[in-house]
């Protein structure tokens, strides 16, 4: 297979992003659905990935190879580096015969990283969710809207967030986030 570059609609505008905003390169993203109350399922996922799937809403569980973002009571986004196909394959093997859904969605979304002292302000301009440190912390994720685009927001550091946006929305969302930051980059 030929390697093709990670080209998203946001890539064309990413050069003009202000400090504090960048588009990350491709990541392995696998959507997993299954019954978290079924220990056979949970154990098989652990065998395949080393992950304890989070059963609490809006939590991220980190493993060695990848992490799992809680999306809904029976749905997670596994995110990692490397080859999507091999992660899908090891999940398919471990979960063979079970009632699950495993989808490689690595190409479905691109990831923006916002960081620095103003990342909370950018989120306040873009989202109605409470991202204040008292309500949200590293290890939390949330599915919500960024401006008018559906998104997953994951806090990865005290002043760093990853924003997963569907590719077709990525130019809209990227430009929106960039503009939200301009006010602060000019004064700093």
């Amino acid at each position: 297979m030929a390697e093709t570059p990670w080209i998203t609609p946001a890539a064309a505008i990413a050069e003009s992003f202000p400090d504090g905003l960048k588009e990350l390169g491709p990541r392995v993203q696998v959507n997993l659905r299954g019954d978290v109350t079924d220990s056979t399922f949970v154990n098989a996922v652990k065998t395949a990935t080393g992950l304890d799937l989070p059963d609490a809403p809006n939590k991220v569980a980190a493993g060695k190879e990848c992490k799992a973002l809680w999306l809904s009571p029976d749905e997670w986004l596994l995110v990692g580096e490397g080859e999507a196909a091999s992660l899908v394959q090891s999940l398919e093997e471990a979960l063979s015969g079970q009632y699950v859904a495993i989808n490689d969605v690595s190409a479905n979304r691109t990831i923006f990283e916002i960081s620095g002292p103003y990342c909370h302000q950018v989120l306040m301009k873009s989202s109605e969710v409470d991202f204040h440190p008292r309500a949200f912390a590293p290890g939390n994720c949330v599915q919500t809207l960024i401006a008018k685009s559906q998104a997953i927001v994951e806090q990865v550091g005290r002043e760093m967030f990853h924003i997963y946006v569907r590719n077709s929305f990525s130019r809209y969302a990227g430009a929106w986030l960039a503009e939200a930051l301009v006010e602060y980059s000019e004064t700093s």
Binding site: I7, T8, P9, A12, K125, A147, K148, S149, N167, S168, F169, R171, Y172, A173, A175, W176, E179, A180
Partner: peptide, 17 residues
């Protein structure tokens, strides 16, 4: 800021450009 191009999201494909 919901004006012009941002009054509603513009969705584009990977072949748009």
């Amino acid at each position: 800021r919901n004006l012009g191009d941002w009054s509603d999201p513009v969705r584009v494909t990977s072949i748009h450009d």
